[in-house]
């Protein structure tokens, strides 16, 4: 029955968008992408078996004032589970946090906590966030393995979005320049593209770098690659992906 009301709710937004925003706790809309938050690690599959959060890392929304990684959302409780051994990113004493948004709510402020200590607050001016939002936070008083709770407090609802980021603070001193968007590391991330299988013309598989002209077998049929890409689920040869794979 619940889903039946999805459409009227969306329609109701025509007249009462604000009501929809406050009345829909599962609605999206932002998380820390770098250094990777726990939900980002789930969505990138760096941490496996996270459940529904891997499909909606932007949805960790709860009332303002919480100090939990899951925003009080029971289906995302895994984010509070420290026994999952979340990988900690090694960083300097100054860390640039970058956010991804799926909806750009007016922002009261951003807060960063280590334990119960608020280590930074950035005013949002009750404006919609810029294209990319990055904040540089001084963590020099908190060396070692830490979990930083990053909070996006919404300006026009009672809610906030929560991201926990596991860090190993204090590797080296960080630059003191104002926060730019982070640049890619100079070395390619090891997990981004596993090497193609030895038999590159074998059976289609995900996470494989296919080049134009290569052929694969999928469900008993042969296909030729017509656009170089790294394969992923949903991009297997089909009538929907003729732009990538043509039957031979």
């Amino acid at each position: 029955m619940r889903k039946v009301f999805v459409y009227p709710l969306v329609i109701a937004g025509t007249a009462a968008a604000g009501l929809v925003a406050t009345g829909s706790p599962a609605s999206a809309h932002g998380y820390v992408s770098a250094p990777p938050s726990r939900q980002a690690l789930c969505a990138s599959r760096a941490v496996a078996d996270c459940g529904q959060i891997q499909f909606e890392p932007q949805s960790v929304e709860g009332p303002k004032g919480l100090r939990s990684c899951d925003g009080g959302v029971s289906q995302f409780a895994i984010l509070n589970d420290n026994s999952r051994a979340w990988p900690a990113r090694t960083v300097g004493s100054s860390v640039t946090f970058t956010w991804v948004f799926t909806a750009r709510h007016r922002t009261s402020n951003w807060e960063y906590f280590v334990g119960n200590t608020r280590v930074a607050v950035v005013d949002g001016g009750n404006q919609q966030p810029d294209a990319v939002v990055s904040h540089q936070v001084d963590l020099s008083r908190f060396p070692g393995r830490r979990t930083v709770l990053a909070i996006w407090n919404i300006g026009d609802t009672a809610n906030a979005f929560y991201s926990c980021v596991d860090l190993n603070v204090g590797g080296s001193s960080a630059p003191s320049t104002p926060a730019p968007p982070p640049v890619r590391p100079t070395t390619p991330p090891p997990s981004s593209a596993p090497p193609p299988p030895a038999n590159a013309s074998g059976t289609w598989a995900t996470n494989t770098a296919y080049k134009i002209g290569e052929e694969v077998t999928f469900q008993g049929k042969r296909y030729r690659c017509r656009q170089s890409h790294t394969s992923l689920s949903g991009w297997e040869p089909s009538i929907f992906t003729l732009a990538l794979w043509l039957p031979v």
Partner: peptide
């Protein structure tokens, strides 16, 4: 979802 996974690995 898989594209997001690829891109988050590139970002992070």
């Amino acid at each position: 979802a898989d594209q997001v996974a690829q891109m988050l690995r590139l970002i992070g």
